[in-house]
Design a protein around this nucleic acid. Structure first.
Lengths: 126, 126, 126, 126
DNA sequence: GTGGTCTAGACCACC
DNA sequence: GTGGTCTAGACCACG
């Protein structure tokens, strides 16, 4: 598992980790039951404080993506969380609106956006 | 001009205001030269602190979307800011990635996303 | 709001706080929309580290009992979380089993247990 | 003897084992003098480390529920331990409080809880 | 002043 | 070794 964090970024480190791990899961590069590095090890690799990684793991566990077993480690959940369809729709709408807003301000056409989406999808698939 | 803010949201109130105003501009519902309500008035309408609206206006002015004329009020800039193409590309990519990530986790196909984008675009146009 | 924590206890401090706050909510002594003390203030009162209280608040927020607004404070949610009925049943069953087990080992009759439940209920109501 | 453990649970595995064995004793399904499987055998059956089962047996022996005879195995004690009444009362109170808390949050009436208790009691008797 | 994040370091329980 | 908890202290962003 390979993550890249950017300490100077506006989005907090622990959220960057969350985002990248859910990306890996969504892309199938992290499968159900797979073991993650211990929070200490990952912290050492990323050269950040262990608690920061642990917070990311905690959030993902609360959201149902990960499960931990004391003394044994942290694993990808066997059953990924079902999302409330109404909530999902609203989230997607908001993200779509954001994308369109940014595109409009930059004079980027809808077709170019669709192209970009395909590109990004390829990038994320395993 | 009609805005809706959500105090409990993760994104700060002043940014919610910024976002919605740029939305209105991008959608053409706020044209160049148009006058905005005073920050005090808008604050009263939204039931928040005037300083919060002021901060939003300040940010938008710094970004070139708005201009203020002392004693006369705040107006939409006559010439909207040109955005650094590289920065724009990166922002779009990130937003696209986010959309794809959410769609994948929710089992929503790319075609459905494209449909959603068209829908949202219609909604935002004046 | 008045809490009592026991640092030597087997159950972690932050969970003691969670438990007592949900108790207050369940008993109606903390109503929807009510403001909680800041995590720093509560920490000072309980003579523990602020982060410990914050963790409790974070957990309760993730569970839907509390909501926070940056710069303004932490409040009891206006809409308390709906619990999955199946999950609830299982939890209740497990708690009931535990109670019966302890009672059996101590030769306490079911009637005495019912009496105890009434007693405890009174104690928790406002 | 049939146990079910859940590695992902918040309560440690060795305590899950303790709890279930005391359950069996309290319910009469494990009588005084009865032989338990060796810790190695039980560990193999549960697919966990032998040391974990050993720890559970050790705790139960320390509490007086089990007795071991070197080279012969582990047995249920002929005389079950008397429990400190004050400690018992406090434990019962806490478990009762927990049950009431969960019931209140889930809008379950006290009568339904009493019904549930009778049900569970039946289930646990041999 | 309030919450949000990060750090460094400690001790414990579990497997 | 792993995760779980707690501390003391720092800096930032928000309202």
């Amino acid at each position: 598992m390979q993550l890249a964090i950017n300490p100077g970024d506006e989005v907090p480190i622990y959220r960057q980790i969350c985002r990248q791990i859910t990306d890996l899961i969504a892309g199938g590069r992290l499968g159900p039951g797979e073991k993650l590095p211990s929070h200490r090890e990952l912290a050492a690799r990323l050269v950040i404080a262990p608690l920061t990684v642990k917070k990311a793991y905690d959030v993902l566990e609360a959201e149902g993506f990960l499960g931990t077993q004391r003394g044994r480690g942290t694993y990808v959940s066997l059953t990924l969380p079902a999302i409330d369809p109404a909530l999902l729709r609203e989230r997607l709408r908001e993200s779509a609106r954001r994308l369109v807003r940014e595109a409009t301000l930059g004079d980027v056409s809808l077709d170019e956006i669709v192209e970009l989406l395909r590109d990004v999808t390829q990038e994320m698939k395993p």
